[in-house]
């Protein structure tokens, strides 16, 4: 399939890929033999090569989501041999390389499995649910042009760094895919924590967490049982400490909102 272009080792793999024509169609695994692969090729490039072959034969190529191919856009979303984003730790599917597999291996590739992420086609799932959670409160309201000087409020470096740890989430959904309960707690925890850690996030702090969690529940994500599979699969190694923080934020907000004095006007 692919010409040998370098001195690196060439290997063959058997791919077992989930094929499903549409959201309401039945799916199944189909096997593909991929020969003579350059081990420096990325896993997505491997799929490109298989697809090239399929297209040339007039067959439907395997649909898979991808864009940046450097681990930042969060589009790629393969479950490879049972682990979202493949065998390695802290990287996205697009940063997985063929050299991670041994010659002759069978590699099983499937889409995320979670009810709020319905399969669109083959390996592509619809993750709009994450956008909806974000729309429910994942923002700080600031009118364009109304902001005060950026240095007017100093922020302790530690807080800013921790907020950045949380903000590094790429919204890929691997946490949901890896969680046996299909819970979105890591994603939501990261977003809620980022804002809760910053002074700018304070005015809407309670409302934000209450609304985002309500939306998360409404969309049918599962319930966390603290198994930490999510953070193990997360390509950005978002810590499950943010789930603990989310829990606390939610409980505090619930209590505060129950006892807060209300203006009578």
């Amino acid at each position: 399939m692919v010409a040998d272009t370098s001195s690196t080792q060439n290997i063959s793999l058997k791919l077992r890929v989930w094929r499903q024509a549409g959201p309401d169609q039945e799916g199944r695994f189909v096997d593909y033999q991929a020969e003579n692969l350059n081990s420096n090729m990325s896993f997505l490039e491997l799929l490109d090569v298989v697809n090239d072959d399929l297209e040339r034969r007039g067959e439907d190529p395997i649909a898979f989501a991808h864009d940046c191919r450097e681990g930042i856009c969060g589009t790629c979303s393969l479950v490879i041999d049972g682990k979202p984003h493949g065998p390695h730790h802290g990287i996205a599917s697009c940063q997985t390389y063929v050299r991670s597999f041994k010659d002759g291996d069978t590699v099983v590739v499937e889409p995320y499995r979670a009810k709020p992420f319905p399969v669109q086609r083959d390996l592509i799932t619809d993750r709009a649910a994450f956008d909806e959670i974000q729309q429910a409160g994942g923002f700080i309201s600031v009118r364009t042009g109304s902001a005060c000087d950026a240095n007017a409020v100093p922020i302790p470096k530690e807080d800013a760094d921790l907020a950045m740890d949380a903000a590094a989430c790429i919204g890929c959904g691997a946490c949901v895919a890896a969680c046996k309960n299909a819970s979105a707690m890591l994603f939501v925890g990261a977003k809620v924590s980022q804002f809760a850690l910053l002074p700018q996030g304070q005015p809407e702090r309670d409302q934000r967490v209450l609304n985002m969690v309500a939306k998360m529940d409404e969309l049918g994500f599962g319930n966390c049982t603290n198994q930490y599979e999510c953070s193990a699969a997360c390509p950005k190694l978002i810590s499950h400490d943010f789930i603990a923080k989310l829990n606390k934020e939610y409980l505090q907000a619930s209590v505060r909102s129950a006892f807060k004095a209300r203006s009578s006007v």
Binding site: P156, A160, A167, Q200
Partner: peptide
């Protein structure tokens, strides 16, 4: 200059120095 103000207000976690400034 307004862009940086706007982004900081939105919660963009820009790198900071130990004193807490950008």
């Amino acid at each position: 200059t307004n862009i940086i103000d706007q982004c900081v207000a939105q919660g963009v976690p820009f790198a900071r120095e130990y004193g807490g400034l950008l």
